[in-house]
């Protein structure tokens, strides 16, 4: 019986941590000064928040079909998240949106 309790508590902690990361990412997307730092903040909520939330839900649902679907969702978001972030960054860079501190030298994008 205590085993169920432990799994419940662990999944609650994971879910709360995941939603906390989601809020942190959203606040970061809102408050950061320019596009490039917002890019970083948005992917915080996408990767960390998503992973913790889905792991917490997987623990809640145990070894059923629901867990398989949750893992499929996690796999899709892990694959498409960074890809779309890269696509946005690449599109912004090629259209002349320079990062503010241009460390990589002047104009050799």
């Amino acid at each position: 019986m205590t085993w169920m309790l432990i799994v419940d508590i662990v999944s609650w902690i994971l879910i709360l941590a995941g939603s906390a990361f989601t809020i942190i990412g959203a606040v970061g997307t809102m408050r950061f000064p320019d596009f490039w730092s917002r890019l970083h903040a948005a992917s915080v909520s996408e990767s960390a928040g998503m992973l913790l939330l889905i792991t917490g839900m997987c623990l809640q649902s145990g070894l059923t079909l629901v867990t398989v679907k949750l893992l499929i969702i996690a796999a899709f978001i892990l694959i498409t998240g960074p890809t779309s972030t890269h696509a946005v960054a690449n599109a912004a860079l090629t259209s002349g949106e320079k990062p503010k501190s241009d460390v990589i030298g002047e104009g050799d994008v």
Binding site: T22, G25, A26, T29, F35, R38, L39, A42, S45, E46, G49, M50, L53, I54, I73, I77, G81, S84, T85, V88, A91, A92, S95, E97
Partner: peptide, 17 residues
Amino acid sequence: VYDRVLAVNSFGTLTVL
């Protein structure tokens, strides 16, 4: 416009969750 694309993408992931 790329901020908006980023926001739409992030909103979509949040909707999934």
